[in-house]
Simulated assay, not measured.
Amino acid sequence: MAQILDPLPPEQSGKILCCYINATSKIQVARISNIPNWYFERVVFPGQRLVFEAPEKGQMEIHTGMMASAILSDNIPCDRLMLDEPSTDEFDTDSSDEKDPFNTKPMLQQLNTKTEDTTKPLQVASLASVD
């Protein structure tokens, strides 16, 4: 995933794909400030998922916003936010003999197809007058 606005400095090695989810009901600001020559700051709305690339040594600061201020509410190492990237072997389409790990369940379930007559006469309830 390329970051157009602020790519990682070329001298940075070991970049990882990360994900942070704002599980609060408040707006947050996610900031990585411990990497020299790199600026990363994003607004994360409640329930929003932020996917980004960062150096392994990055420390994400989470600032929770109030009306006119924000407090530092968390400091998370980026390696704890790392996503598991699938290996290229999992997407190998040339091996048709192997079992597909993604399609283990059938897409459609078998319908119950009874061939016997399932129609029954309708029974109508009636009211009787009582004196």
Rank of each mutant, 00 (worst) to 15 (best):
M1P: 15
A2N: 10
I4R: 15
L5S: 06
P7D: 07
P9D: 00
P10T: 00
Q12W: 01
S13V: 03
L17D: 09
C18R: 02
T24S: 11
S25R: 05
K26N: 10
I27S: 12
V29A: 01
R31T: 01
R31N: 03
S33M: 07
N34D: 09
N34L: 09
I35Y: 02
P36I: 01
N37Y: 00
W38S: 02
Y39M: 10
F40H: 09
F40N: 00
E41P: 00
R42Q: 03
R42L: 13
R42C: 07
V43Y: 14
V44L: 03
F45P: 15
P46N: 06
G47M: 11
Q48K: 14
Q48R: 13
E53T: 09
E53W: 12
A54V: 04
E56A: 03
E56K: 04
K57W: 00
K57P: 03
G58H: 03
G58M: 00
G58P: 08
G58D: 03
Q59L: 10
Q59C: 08
Q59H: 13
E61N: 11
H63P: 11
T64A: 06
T64H: 06
G65S: 10
M66I: 13
A68D: 15
A68N: 13
S69Y: 12
A70K: 11
I71N: 04
L72F: 01
S73I: 10
S73Q: 10
D74C: 03
D74W: 02
N75Y: 14
I76G: 11
P77W: 09
D79N: 07
D79P: 15
R80P: 00
L83F: 09
E85N: 12
E85T: 14
P86Q: 02
D89G: 12
D89V: 09
E90G: 05
E90A: 14
D92L: 08
T93G: 05
T93N: 11
D97M: 01
D100E: 12
P101D: 11
N103W: 05
N103K: 05
N103A: 04
P106C: 04
M107R: 11
M107A: 13
L108W: 12
L108D: 15
Q109E: 09
N112L: 09
T113S: 14
E116I: 07
T118E: 08
T119M: 13
K120V: 11
K120E: 00
L122T: 03
L122R: 01
Q123E: 10
Q123G: 03
V124F: 07
A125Q: 08
L127H: 05
A128C: 11
A128F: 09
A128M: 10
S129K: 12
D131P: 04
D131C: 13
